[in-house]
């Protein structure tokens, strides 16, 4: 087990030297042991006629911002559930951070999930806890000390623009604000991977942009972000990698708008402008920051 891990680390190092960001379609891309998410021939069907996901193969790299698009029932949520290990694939291999999910025992699943931030369409907040307590719960679960909680929760709430709503209950907030709480909870542990399943499905266009900007900001801290959505218009404007599903099969895996056009980095404001379909404001190029400690999965679940 220990040698396996050090091997993986060595491979990761080697890859870091050799690998310039290669944004080719997944099918041609060689499978990298350090890909944050790797699906190989994954099939999951609910019954004979109804395929959840059929033979899905793709990988997602560290720091990527990936859209999963497709109509209702296309298999987006199935993919999310497979990643959360809420269910098991019928066949195929899923690796997250190089770790085969089928090797994680039921008992270790909670520790695995602490490395994922999850955002849902229906927010899934605890209804009888305040904004502060909802976010703090994600830390309490990991056994964080009271001091840690008192430091981290206000920080993340400031980042998500909820500083004034600390003691409100979810039902006292607007949909957009509830989703911000949900994002704050997902990100308070600084997970290397953030999954959002239709995060803006219940929100109006303006609020949607706010939430997407928030997710983008999180992506810029180094977290890999996967967003499932059926809002294709928004996705096409954003020029990010898109995987489109139909009837459980991947029918498209590319960067919307063409690879050449993709900027390496843009500010949150530029990102928001893209979303609105406006011409981008004067570009303020920034050096892509190096991944920091938050990018690396902690080893807790690989024990």
């Amino acid at each position: 087990m220990a040698t396996q891990r050090s091997n993986a680390a060595r491979l990761r190092q080697a890859e870091g030297r050799a690998d310039a960001p290669s944004r080719r379609p997944a099918a041609e891309r060689p499978s990298h042991p350090d890909a944050v998410i790797e699906f190989r021939g994954v099939t999951k069907s609910y019954d004979h006629s109804n395929a959840g996901v059929r033979d899905a193969t793709f990988s997602v790299h560290r720091g990527d911002f990936l859209f999963l698009v497709g109509q209702t029932g296309a298999g987006k949520s199935t993919l999310m559930k497979l990643l959360l290990k809420e269910m098991e694939p019928d066949s195929g291999l899923i690796r997250v951070a190089g770790r085969d999910l089928s090797e994680i025992t039921r008992k270790k699943v909670p520790y695995y999930r602490r490395n994922l931030g999850v955002v849902f369409q229906d927010f899934k907040l605890l209804p009888n806890r305040t904004v502060y307590d909802n976010v703090a719960y994600a830390l309490q679960v990991t056994g964080a000390s009271r001091k840690q909680i008192r430091q981290q929760v206000p920080d993340i709430l400031r980042l998500t623009g909820l500083s004034t709503k600390l003691h409100h209950y979810p039902h006292q907030l607007s949909g957009g604000e509830q989703q911000r709480v949900s994002v704050a909870r997902a990100f308070v542990n600084h997970p290397p991977l953030l999954l959002a399943d239709e995060p803006t499905g219940n929100l109006d266009p303006d609020t949607t942009i706010g939430i997407m900007q928030l997710l983008y900001r999180i992506n810029k801290t180094g977290s890999t972000v996967v967003v499932a959505t059926h809002d294709e218009g928004m996705v096409n404007r954003m020029r990010r990698r898109v995987i489109e599903l139909q009837g459980g099969q991947i029918i498209r895996d590319e960067v919307a708008g063409g690879y050449g056009a993709q900027p390496t980095s843009e500010s949150t404001a530029e990102f928001g402008a893209l979303l609105r379909g406006e011409p981008a404001p004067a570009p303020q190029r920034r050096v892509r920051r190096d991944p920091d400690a938050a990018d690396l999965f902690d080893e807790a679940f690989s024990e």
Binding site: L84, K107, P110, Y111, Y112, R113, R114, L116, V118, K124, L125, L126, P127, Y137, A138, V141, T142, R185
Partner: peptide, 16 residues
Amino acid sequence: RREVEVMKLVGATDSF
């Protein structure tokens, strides 16, 4: 049960 579901999703162990 919704509450329990959310707890599980944020990584709470069964005993927690």
